[in-house]
């Protein structure tokens, strides 16, 4: 777990200013993303489990998604391509999104 957090910090640091190239945009983990604000999916750290499954559900880099709500148990309900996908709290902490400036 400690190792994955390390990875995350590293990825965060290199992505913070360069994810979409737009200046002033901030990269956050999904669990930190504000509710009801459209955000852009940023590539997840290498080795993120369920990445392929997320991709088939429409969670792909560049896709615009928004957090609809936080649920009991810390999961996030996210609007992805019009559908509602629930993402558990541990995964939500690893996935990255960019809030446009």
């Amino acid at each position: 777990m400690a190792e994955s957090k390390g990875n995350l910090t590293f990825v965060n640091s290199i992505l913070t200013s360069s994810a979409t190239g737009s200046p002033g945009a901030t990269v956050l983990s999904l669990d930190e993303a504000p509710v009801d604000v459209p955000v852009v999916v940023v590539p997840a750290p290498e080795g993120t489990s369920a990445a392929h499954r997320l991709a088939t559900l429409g969670w792909r880099p560049g896709a615009v998604v928004s957090v609809i709500r936080r649920t009991a148990g810390g999961a996030r309900v996210v609007s992805v391509g019009g559908a509602r996908v629930a993402i558990g709290h541990t995964l939500a902490h690893r996935l990255l999104v960019e809030v446009p400036a």
Partner: peptide
């Protein structure tokens, strides 16, 4: 652990 990803 398997992360939760579920279609609602």
């Amino acid at each position: 652990s398997e992360p939760l990803v579920i279609d609602l």
